[in-house]
Design a protein around this nucleic acid. Structure first.
Length: 876
RNA sequence: GCCGAGGUGGCGGAAUCGGUAGACGCAGCGGAUUCAAAAUCCGCCGUUGAAAAACGUGAGGGUUCGAGUCCCUCUCUCGGCACCA
């Protein structure tokens, strides 16, 4: 047997361990009904080029949980793949003239190498890339099924249009209302798009949140608010024939029908038919409508922009009191939301109040405060105005509270055929059409006589051509006759293939199911899903930024696949049983302003910071030219802001184990983490210390771990700490999923180990027991060094195949415990009592203690609080 | 603007159910070892104070024998807002 290396040499032992795992297929997952399964899923990466620290954090958490559960006897699957379609590939193509496919595949190859260098126990036989036809063909296949079921439909939707590049832009590509490449002012444009009817599942998506007990409460809450179920009324305002010149009704939805008698105007979106009609002979209004159509479509911009409006000169009739109400066009009313029109009650809605004040529209109080918070509605706005109260100035409804008024008004509206109660969702249908090249083609053929025809199964997949030139202007597929020219599957006449591709969220909505059976070329999923996904995927790990969209879409797709019958008899309503939302790894951003409002983002690694005396950055310069750069915000690491930190330098210098240990030790996983490599040395030092202590121990000769027998007080205390630590680490890994504290506990244990003075034979067996436990407890986090160290402690055995250390309950027994002594809640000392002492005995001992006597100053205590095992508080 | 989360020493963080605030680590300081250095080991390390003690968990208020933890108001930072992924 070769002698253990004295020096810790990470690269050598890591490459050896990785080669060994590869040879033995240690990470391969095979369906095995004899063991409980543990499907450990991390969000797959977009292959942007290199890993960044956010990836290292995400995948290390996954690997720790996967390896820990394997040691706990589970049959573990940890797959990995590539979210390979998306915009950055097109941007790279424009910049560097590389086809998106080639760029993507070479990124995948490089990043896969990085993942392997980090030693993750990934079953690569299940690897998938969403840009490959054998993956996306099934997405197309399901699309055609959903289309036939009416769950996908076509309608107009609003997009950001760049009039110079003649292309649709993502919200991210619109900066201050201008296109990021052209600098042109962006306009809203209505184009036909395919939508998935997620609203048809709103009720179930909301209700099933209750069964997601393994999800963070904050994520469930965000999803609940996003779905946004509200109860209200739809109300129709009949057209005033005199001003509009036609019969008709303007429909609105409101959650506050009780305030209806306070409505003083209605507002419609710029795209609303009434607005269009009024603008026909009103140039100023037409101009205003054009102004409303400028700018992007992002909700955040809509919500923060200045609220503007203009009267149309048209009127509608109040459905209950018959008053004529003016119709205004307002930039804050969106055509895509609800009815594209709202009723305005300035007295009891903050936004309407501001608008009415600005344009001197009447404000009519129709709700009286229940608490007397106000008696009249006057400027400035008070929050109490919007509270539920009692109807006033509302004729027959006066005196009714919210619910009574709601019911009465709804009943009256219904009797007149001008309204009804309705449940409304904030959730909107999911627009999945993208006018982009690098995505999954939408499997539809447009035929002049047959209309939109889904591509038949035997013609799937519709393969995306990979050799294209991307220019950034227009959609490349729409310029490729060899792609779009085809014949109608129904009538055989010449037809045109759809050239839009799907939103990349579609691919990421079901990849976790395909991991179970990536090799099946006959079906989207098969019975292996039943094995791995039974009861849900056991652990999903990914960034908190996906709390709403990705996680909601994935839940939705799982339900769609279920309802298409893809799971057979297996009940799978929710894909993810347990969710760990990782906090963002954030880093400062730096940029320089370029012409046309564009920004050049500079990587933090290329920047030199100047700090003030308190260490706060005040200025920054580019290392290469020494000239200043602007300090931006601290944001999540991303390709677009160029603030990602490549872990490669860290791995090269210290090895994978140090990188893994450091990022796990830096903070708890759900907390956001501002990146800094200060402290990496400490992680490295700790691993060297582990190595050295094992080396010292094994060079003195092998022994078997302690199995019983009399121990000195020192060893007894140490063993108690050892087994307390085992309990804590198992709890941290299994229940708490907090790794920094587990590492800290092992560090403390090792500090205690180093202080042990005894050298007897029994002391050596306790040391053996402790080192074995330390190495196995660390194994999930730093598998390479643990593997190597364990092979020295127990020659011929593999750490990865060991069970996790077990707590010896007898080692935890304690004769005496220390209680804190408080007087009036202030810590004054401590008290040693027998572990068996009852409350009365503790009280007596506390009162008798010198410290307490001193603070009592002869007075009798008013109250005694005894918290067993913790403290005694004496109130004087 | 709306929804969600967070703010604790010079820094990352700990305190798991309302019960010793600052575990563990980084940085710093002092010492041992060394011809010297690196590496390693030992000790100190919230603020004020000579000490006793007082103060101290973003700010202000409240509940409690006791609050970093619960409640209210404010403030700053981060994530999301439907075409970044």
């Amino acid at each position: 047997m070769p002698v253990m290396q004295e020096k810790y040499q990470p690269e050598e032992i890591e490459l050896a361990a990785q080669a060994h795992w590869k040879k033995t297929g240690a990470a391969r997952a095979i369906e095995d009904l004899s063991k409980p399964k543990y499907y450990c899923l991390s969000m797959f990466p977009y292959p942007s080029g290199k890993l960044h620290m956010g990836h290292v954090r995400n995948y290390t958490i996954g690997d720790v949980l996967a390896r820990f559960h394997k040691m706990q006897g589970f049959n573990v699957m940890q797959p990995m793949g590539w979210d390979a379609f998306g915009m950055p590939a097109e941007n790279a193509a424009i910049q560097n003239n590389v086809p998106p496919a080639q760029w993507t595949y070479s990124n995948i190859e490089y990043m896969k190498g990085q993942l392997n260098r980090l030693g993750f126990a990934i079953d690569w036989e299940r690897e998938l890339a969403t840009c490959k036809p054998d993956y996306y063909r099934w997405e197309q296949w399901l699309f055609t099924r959903l289309y036939e079921k009416g769950l996908i439909y076509k309608r107009y939707g609003t997009v950001n249009w760049d009039p110079v590049d003649q292309t649709v832009l993502a919200n991210e590509q619109v900066i201050d209302g201008r296109g990021w490449r052209s600098g042109a002012l962006i306009e809203k444009r209505e184009i036909p798009m395919y939508y998935m009817k997620i609203t048809a599942y709103a009720e179930e998506l909301l209700a099933d949140l209750d069964q997601l007990g393994g999800w963070p409460e904050q994520v469930r809450l965000m999803q609940k608010n996003w779905i946004g179920k509200s109860y209200g009324c739809e109300i129709s305002f009949p057209y005033d024939a005199a001003s509009i010149g036609a019969e008709g009704q303007l429909k609105v939805f409101t959650t506050r029908p009780d305030t209806l008698m306070g409505a003083t105007y209605v507002a419609v979106a710029a795209e609303h038919p009434l607005a269009t009609q009024a603008a026909a002979n009103n140039a100023a209004l037409g101009e205003f409508i054009e102004e409303c159509k400028r700018g992007g479509v992002a909700e955040a911009d809509m919500a923060t922009m200045e609220k503007k409006g203009m009267p149309t000169g048209l009127h509608v009739v109040h459905p209950l009191n018959g008053e004529k109400l003016p119709v205004w066009v307002a930039n804050y009313v969106l055509m895509g939301y609800g009815e594209g029109a709202v009723m305005a009650v300035p007295a009891h809605d903050e936004r309407d109040f501001a608008f009415a004040t600005k344009y001197e529209l009447p404000i009519r109080m129709s709700i009286a405060s229940k608490t007397g918070a106000y008696t009249d509605v006057v400027a400035p706005w008070q929050e109490a105005y919007a509270e539920y109260g009692v109807c006033t100035n509302s004729g027959k409804y006066d005196g009714l509270d919210f619910q009574a008024a709601f019911d009465a008004i709804a009943a009256d509206l219904e009797a007149k055929g001008l309204g009804a109660k309705r449940t409304q969702f904030r959730l909107r249908d999911w627009g999945i059409s993208r006018q982009r090249y690098w995505g999954c083609p939408i499997p539809i053929i447009h035929c002049e006589s047959c209309g939109d025809v889904p591509v038949p199964d035997d013609q799937l997949p519709v393969v995306l051509p990979e050799n294209v030139t991307v220019t950034g202007a227009g959609s490349p597929l729409a310029k490729m006759p060899e792609f779009y020219e085809c014949s109608c599957p129904k009538c055989g006449q010449p037809a045109r293939r759809e050239t839009d591709t799907m939103d990349t969220f579609v691919e990421s909505s079901w990849y976790f199911l395909r991991y179970c059976c990536p090799d099946n070329d006959q079906a989207m999923v098969d019975e292996r899903v039943a094995y791995w996904c039974k009861g849900g995927i056991d652990q999903y790990i990914g960034g908190i930024e996906h709390a709403i969209l990705h996680l909601l879409y994935s839940r939705f797709w799982t339900k769609l696949m279920r309802d298409v019958g893809l799971f057979g008899d297996v009940k799978l309503d929710e894909p993810f049983a347990n969710l760990l939302t990782q906090g963002m790894v954030v880093a400062p951003t730096f940029y320089r302003d370029l012409d046309g409002g564009k920004k050049q983002w500079i990587n933090p690694a290329d920047v030199e910071l100047q700090c003030d005396e308190r260490g706060r950055p005040v200025a920054a310069t580019l290392k290469s030219d020494g000239l200043p750069v602007v300090i931006g915000g601290t944001e999540k690491m991303s390709k677009s802001k160029n603030n990602g930190v490549d872990p490669q330098a860290l791995i090269d210098q210290y090895g994978a184990d140090t990188a893994r240990l450091f990022i796990m030790f830096a903070s708890p996983p759900d907390q956001s983490l501002e990146w800094s490599d200060a402290g990496v040395e400490g992680a490295y030092r700790f691993l060297k210390r582990v190595w050295r202590l094992v080396h010292e121990h094994v060079t003195a000769g092998c022994v078997t771990a302690y199995a019983g027998g009399e121990l000195s007080a020192e060893l007894k205390t140490f063993r108690r700490q050892l087994h307390q630590t085992i309990g804590k680490v198992a709890d941290d890994f299994g229940r708490r999923k907090q790794f920094n504290t587990a590492i800290a506990a092992v560090m403390e244990l090792l500090n205690a180990y180093a202080k042990l003075s005894e050298t007897s034979e029994v002391a050596r067996t306790v040391r053996q027991e402790a080192l074995e436990a330390v190495v196995l407890m660390l194994f999930p986090i730093v598998p390479h060094v643990s593997e190597a160290a364990f092979a020295e402690l127990r020659p011929g055995q593999t750490a990865g195949n060991q069970p996790f250390p077990q707590v010896d309950a007898s080692a935890l027994v304690q004769d005496e415990i220390e209680l804190m002594l408080q007087v009036n809640g202030k810590l004054r000392g401590s008290l040693l009592v027998p572990a068996s002492a009852d409350k009365a005995a503790i009280e007596a001992a506390a009162l008798a203690s010198e410290t307490v006597q001193k603070h009592l100053e002869g007075k009798a205590p008013k109250k005694l609080v005894v918290v067993p095992g913790r403290l005694v508080n004496i109130v004087v």
